[in-house]
Design a protein around this nucleic acid. Structure first.
Length: 682
DNA sequence: CTAGGGTTAG
C-alpha cells in the first residue's frame, strides 16, 4: 500500500520534490516492492524514469536497485504488448536505470546492466562515459567514448561533449579540453550554447583563462549560464576585478542575473575585500527579495567577514532562519580571522554539543584557529573526533592537524599525522616543513624538502618561505642563499617581499648586518616595510645603532605613523648605554605624535580571563605572581638564557637586574582586547 | 552547461 501511495504522489512532481518524501528510504536497509504493485498499477515509462533519476540524484541506491529487481521479477513489462508497449519506451527505462547506477557510483552494476541491455543508443553510451568519469575512472570513461566513435554504433552528440568537458576540472585535463574544442568545430556544435558554456567552464577550471575568454567572445548567443560561467570562472582564477566588471556589463545588458550569478559576484567582492561593491550587491538582493536564501546568506556573511566586518556578518547569522554546515563554517572562520579566535573555538564547541553535523570542512576550519597560545586539550579532542568520523582521508583535515600540533608545541605528533596520511598535497608538505622550521629543526626541514622533490611534488613559494625561515633560525646562511637561488633558477618562482625579508632576517640574525644591507641595496624591487623591519630587528638583536638608524629612517619613510622605528632605536641605544640618544629618540617620537599601543597579555584560568600589562600590579595576587616569575627567571638564567635587550627596556619585574615576561597565554594590542570584551559575540 | 564554506609562511 505504501509504495502505491508514494508512486501516485511522486509522479506529477519534479525530481527535486522527491528528497523529503524519499528520505526514509535512504537509511532503510532494503525496500521490497510487492511485485504486484509494479508497474501495471500507476506507472508508465516516464514516471519510472523520473523516479529512477531522482533515486540517482539523491543517492538512493537501495530504492533504485529495488525498482530494478522488481523489473527482473516481472520481465513481462518489457514485452511489446504488455508493459511499456514500445521498445523506445523500454529504452528510456533502461537508460534511466543506467543513470541511477552511474550516479550512485556502483560501477560494477552499471557495466553489468549495460552489457545485458538488449539495445543501446547515444544516451546509453553517454551515461557510461559520464558514470566512469564522474567516479574519476578516466581511462575507462574515455575508452567508452573511443569505442562509441570507433564502432560507429552511435555517433556522439552535444551531451557527450558536455559530459566529458565537465569531468575536466584541473590543469591536467587541459589537452582534453582542447581536443574536445576541436571536435566541437569538426562536428558543427559551435553554435550550441550548452557546449560553449561547458567549454568556458572547463577552460577556466584548467586555468586556461584566455581560451575561456575567447570562447565567450566568439559565442553566437549567451544566456545566464554563459555569463555566470564566465563570472565564476574569473573568480576561480582570482581575477576578481575583471569578474565584477563583467557582472556590471551583464547588468546593463538584456540577460538577467540569477542567484548563482550573485553568488559568484559576492565571492569576487570577498576576494577584493570590496566592501562598497559587496554592499551594493546586498542591496540588489534585497530589491529582488532573495537576500534570505541560505546560499546567499552564507555568501554575504563571507563577504562581510573577509572585508573585516564581522559584525555585519554576525547580524545576518543571527537573523538567518536556516543554518547548515556551510553557513556555520563561514561564521566560524569570520570570527577567527577578525580577532575572535577564542569565540570561534567556543562557537565550534557549542555547535558540536548541540548536535550539529560536523563535516570535514568545518573541522579543518576550526583547526586553523589554533595558534601558539592554545592549549592542546581541545586540539586533541578534535583529532579524536576526526578519527571517529573517519575524516583521516581528508587532506584539509590532516593538514590542519599537522599545523595545530606544531603550533601547540607537539612536533612529533605533527610528524605522526603527516606520516600516516595516504594522500598528501603540496600544502601537507609545506605544513610539515614549516613545522620543523618553527621548532628550529632546520635539518629535518631541509631533509623533508629533498624528500618532497624526490616524490615529484612541486614546491611552491610558501615552501621556500618555510625553508628560508628554517635556515634563518638555525644560522644556515649559505644554505639559505642557495635555497633562494634555486627557487628562482630551478623553479622560476619570483620571490616576493616576504622572501627577501626572510633572507634579510637570516643574514641579520647571523650578525651579517653589512651583508644584509648590501643585499637590500641589490634587490630588483623596492624594499618594503617587512624588509626594513627585518633589518631593524636584526640590529636590535646585535645592538647595531649605525645600520639600525639607516633601517629606521627608511621605515619612517615607509610608515610615518608607526612607532616601531622609534621604539627599536630607543632599545638599541639603551643596550649600548647611549642614554642621550635614547632620550632624544623618545622625545622625537612624542613630538611627532606617534605612540606605541600598550601591549597587553591575558591568560584564561578556570574560565576567567585575567589581563595584564607591563609592570602591572593591579591584580590582587600580583606579588605572588612576580615571585613565581622571578623564580622561573632564576632557573632560566641558570640554564644559560640571556634576556633580550628589547624586552629588557619594556619590562621590568620588581627591581631586580633582569626582567622579562614570557609567561603569557595571549598577547596583542590593547585595542584588540577592548574589542574582544566589548563585542556582543559570544 | 552556471552555484555559498575549509588547510600552509609572517
Amino acid at each position: 500500500m505504501k509504495s502505491q501511495w508514494i508512486f501516485k504522489t511522486l509522479v506529477p512532481h519534479s525530481p527535486s520534490c522527491f528528497s523529503s518524501i524519499l528520505s526514509p528510504f535512504k537509511t532503510q536497509k532494503l525496500y521490497q516492492f510487492p511485485s504486484s504493485d509494479l508497474p501495471k498499477i500507476v506507472l508508465n515509462h516516464l514516471d519510472l524514469s523520473l523516479l529512477l533519476s531522482a533515486s540517482g540524484k539523491q543517492g538512493y541506491f537501495l530504492l533504485g536497485s529495488s525498482i530494478h529487481s522488481s523489473f527482473i521479477k516481472n520481465p513481462e513489462i518489457f514485452n511489446p504488448n504488455e508493459g511499456f508497449k514500445d521498445s523506445n519506451n523500454a529504452l528510456v527505462v533502461w537508460n534511466s536505470l543506467l543513470g541511477m547506477y552511474s550516479r550512485c557510483g556502483t560501477l560494477t552494476d552499471l557495466t553489468k546492466l549495460f552489457d545485458e541491455m538488449p539495445m543501446r543508443d547515444t544516451v546509453s553510451w553517454n551515461t557510461m562515459v559520464s558514470g566512469f568519469l564522474r567516479n574519476r575512472e578516466f581511462d575507462k570513461g574515455f575508452a567508452y567514448f573511443k569505442q562509441m566513435r570507433k564502432l560507429g554504433f552511435c555517433w556522439f552528440d552535444q551531451a557527450t561533449l558536455t559530459t566529458i568537458l565537465s569531468a575536466c576540472d584541473g590543469v591536467e585535463f587541459c589537452y582534453v579540453v582542447k581536443m574536445m574544442h576541436g571536435l566541437v568545430f569538426l562536428n558543427g556544435f559551435e553554435k550550441e550554447i550548452s557546449v560553449g558554456n561547458s567549454l568556458i567552464t572547463s577552460y577556466f577550471k584548467c586555468g586556461c583563462v584566455s581560451s575561456g575568454r575567447r570562447v565567450f567572445d566568439e559565442m553566437f548567443e549567451r544566456n545566464v549560464i554563459t555569463w555566470t560561467a564566465m563570472i565564476s570562472g574569473l573568480v576561480q582564477n582570482e581575477l576578481y576585478e575583471e569578474s565584477l566588471g563583467l557582472f556590471n556589463q551583464m547588468r546593463s545588458g538584456s540577460v538577467c542575473p540569477n542567484s548563482l550569478t550573485y553568488l559568484s559576484s559576492l565571492t569576487a567582492c570577498s576576494g577584493l575585500q570590496a566592501l562598497a561593491e559587496g554592499r551594493q550587491i546586498h542591496g540588489l538582493l534585497w530589491k529582488l527579495g532573495i537576500q534570505s536564501e541560505l546560499c546567499i546568506e552564507s555568501s554575504l556573511m563571507d563577504m562581510y567577514s573577509k572585508c573585516g566586518n564581522v559584525n555585519d556578518a554576525w547580524r545576518i547569522f543571527e537573523s538567518a532562519q536556516d543554518l547548515d554546515e556551510v553557513s556555520m563554517t563561514v561564521i566560524l572562520v569570520g570570527l577567527a580571522q577578525n580577532g575572535f579566535e577564542e569565540e570561534a573555538k567556543r562557537f565550534f564547541v557549542k555547535m558540536f554539543e548541540s548536535g550539529t553535523e560536523i563535516d570535514p570542512n568545518m573541522l579543518s576550519a576550526v583547526l586553523g584557529v589554533f595558534g601558539e597560545d592554545t592549549s592542546l586539550g581541545l586540539g586533541k579532542q578534535i583529532h579524536s573526533l576526526s578519527i571517529k568520523r573517519n575524516f583521516g582521508f581528508n587532506c584539509y583535515v590532516s593538514n590542519g592537524l599537522i599545523n595545530m600540533y606544531s603550533k601547540c608545541g607537539d612536533l612529533e605528533e605533527s610528524a605522526k599525522v603527516f606520516t600516516r596520511m595516504s594522500q598528501r598535497n603540496s600544502i601537507s608538505w609545506n605544513s610539515m616543513i614549516a613545522a620543523f622550521a618553527r621548532h628550529g629543526d632546520g635539518c629535518r626541514a631541509l631533509q623533508l624538502y629533498e624528500e618532497m622533490r624526490s616524490e615529484g611534488i612541486a614546491p611552491t613559494d610558501v615552501t621556500f618561505l618555510s625553508l628560508l625561515h628554517a635556515c634563518s633560525h638555525v644560522g644556515l646562511v649559505e644554505k639559505g642563499m642557495e635555497v633562494l637561488k634555486m627557487m628562482t633558477d630551478v623553479y622560476g618562482i619570483i620571490p616576493r617581499a616576504e622572501h627577501y625579508a626572510c633572507v634579510v632576517d637570516m643574514l641579520g640574525r647571523a650578525g651579517l648586518l653589512n651583508e644584509a644591507k648590501t643585499f637590500i641595496e641589490g634587490l630588483p624591487v623596492k624594499p618594503d616595510v617587512l624588509v626594513w623591519q627585518a633589518l631593524l630587528g636584526a640590529c636590535s638583536i646585535h645592538g647595531d645603532s649605525e645600520i639600525g638608524k639607516y633601517a629606521a629612517n627608511q621605515l619612517v619613510l615607509e610608515t610615518p605613523e608607526s612607532s616601531v622605528p622609534y621604539v627599536s632605536m630607543a632599545n638599541i641605544y639603551f643596550s649600548r648605554g647611549k642614554w642621550k640618544e635614547r632620550a632624544k629618540t623618545i622625545k622625537r617620537m612624542k613630538e611627532i605624535g606617534v605612540s606605541k599601543e600598550t601591549g597587553i597579555s591575558w591568560i584564561e584560568i578556570e574560565k576567567k580571563v585575567h589581563t595584564f600589562v607591563v609592570q602591572d600590579r593591579m591584580h590582587p595576587q600580583a606579588e605572588a605572581m612576580y615571585g613565581v616569575l622571578e623564580e622561573l627567571l632564576e632557573l632560566m638564567l641558570d640554564e644559560g638564557y640571556v634576556p633580550g635587550y628589547v624586552t629588557l627596556t619594556r619590562v621590568r619585574v620588581s627591581d631586580k637586574k633582569y626582567s622579562n615576561t614570557c609567561w603569557t597565554h595571549g598577547h596583542g594590542s590593547s585595542k584588540k582586547m577592548k574589542s574582544r570584551s566589548s563585542s556582543g559575540v559570544r
